[in-house]
């Protein structure tokens, strides 16, 4: 087991190396509009150097005057020391901006995941046990509708209904107008209040996938031989479903949920942007649109690490949870 994990970790690092190489090459090949903008602004000033001279100086300043490969290895060297450079848009170290925004995203992810599980798993199981019934069809269609809903459209609908028509929530932002006047509990409640709509959006969008996954796996289990044996023994349906079937359905569920744990940190790029919630997703969206190379590199690498970690956790959990699986 230890050997397996070690091997996977090493492989992950190799993959990460190539992923970052591709991302770095891609970003470096793009026009660095951020630097160009600054150079243009500076050269506009009276008595200033020409645009080309500014470009040269700024490129040197931002380490963009090297070749792509040299720059990449330099970036890796810095990264291994935990130094991701300074963000251009936020003008503070990347890790500092990351620290400021990540926890909000994490909290949002946690809330979303909690509700996602307690809603999706029971519905998926009900749907599977009553296959081809009206309940099943309804749940399946709702799940598919959830998957098919474009985030931005759903968010706009929620805003129209709850913010504009009913006036229960603000359209944008994390804090209200009188946030500074509130005591600490009031501030907490204010933030929680502003997080309701984004979380609802995330939950509704993500429920469908887990629900269908639960249903498919439950159906597979219900069709297996040991369930037939359990029924043949004359066990009550209740016992069959909850004692024999559900426990076996938990194997893939635990695996996939475990695998999505790192994803809690990835932030919801689209949703956060729509509601202007200052989480890691919104911060990186602004950075990416602004051509902030250090922050974009950091965020993309971070996401790649999360994906690799998720896969690793899922595979390990699969072996741990299911005694039938043995890693060779």
């Amino acid at each position: 087991m230890k050997k397996y994990i070690l091997k996977r970790l090493l492989l992950s690092i190799v993959i990460l190396f190539f992923v970052t190489l591709i991302i770095y090459t891609l970003i470096r090949c793009l026009p660095t509009s951020y630097i160009e903008n600054i150079a243009r602004q500076k050269s506009m000033q009276p008595g200033s150097k020409s645009f080309e001279e500014w470009m040269e100086q700024l490129s040197a300043m931002y380490n963009l005057d090297t070749g792509i490969l040299t720059g990449f290895f330099r970036w890796w060297g810095q990264m291994l020391r935990g130094n991701f450079g300074d963000s251009w848009v936020y003008t503070i170290p990347v890790t500092e901006e990351f620290n400021k925004t990540i926890w909000l995203s994490f909290v949002m992810g946690l809330i979303t995941m909690f509700f996602e599980i307690i809603i999706a798993v029971p519905l998926g199981i009900i749907s599977a046990t009553k296959q081809y019934s009206k309940t099943d069809y309804t749940i399946s269609v709702i799940a598919l509708a959830g998957i098919s809903l474009p985030t931005f459209f759903f968010a706009s609908l929620l805003k129209l209904l709850f913010s504009v028509k009913l006036g229960w929530f603000d359209l944008f932002g994390l804090v209200g107008r009188n946030y500074e006047q509130l005591d600490s509990f009031g501030q907490f409640m204010d933030k929680a209040h502003h997080l309701v709509l984004p979380c609802v959006t995330l939950i509704v969008i993500s429920i469908g996938g887990l629900m269908r996954y639960t249903r498919t796996n439950m159906l597979e289990v219900l069709n297996s031989d040991y369930i037939r044996t359990a029924r043949a023994k004359g066990l009550s349906e209740r016992k069959v479903v909850f004692h024999h079937a559900f426990r076996n359905t938990l194997i893939p569920l635990v695996t996939i949920i475990g695998g999505s744990l790192p994803g809690l940190f990835s932030g919801a790029l689209i949703t956060e942007t729509l509601y202007a919630i200052p989480g890691i997703g919104y911060a990186s969206y602004k950075a990416m649109v602004g051509g902030d190379i250090p922050f974009s590199m950091f965020y993309l690498t971070f996401l790649a690490i999360l994906t690799l970690l998720g896969n690793l956790i899922a595979d390990i959990l699969y072996a741990v949870v299911d005694p039938r699986v043995r890693i060779s």
Binding site: V14, I15, L16, F18, V19, I22, I23, L26, I27, L30, P31, S33, E36, L269, I270, S284, Y285, M288, V289, G290, G291, S296, Y299, L300, L303, A304, T307, L308
Partner: peptide, 25 residues
């Protein structure tokens, strides 16, 4: 392994970066 590498590339951010770059161009 190539698939693994491409699987790890976060597609939404990449698309946003490319879109913004095309905007600038």
């Amino acid at each position: 392994r190539i698939v693994d590498i491409f699987y790890c590339i976060p597609s939404t951010p990449i698309l946003i970066i490319l879109g913004a770059a095309m905007d600038a161009q």
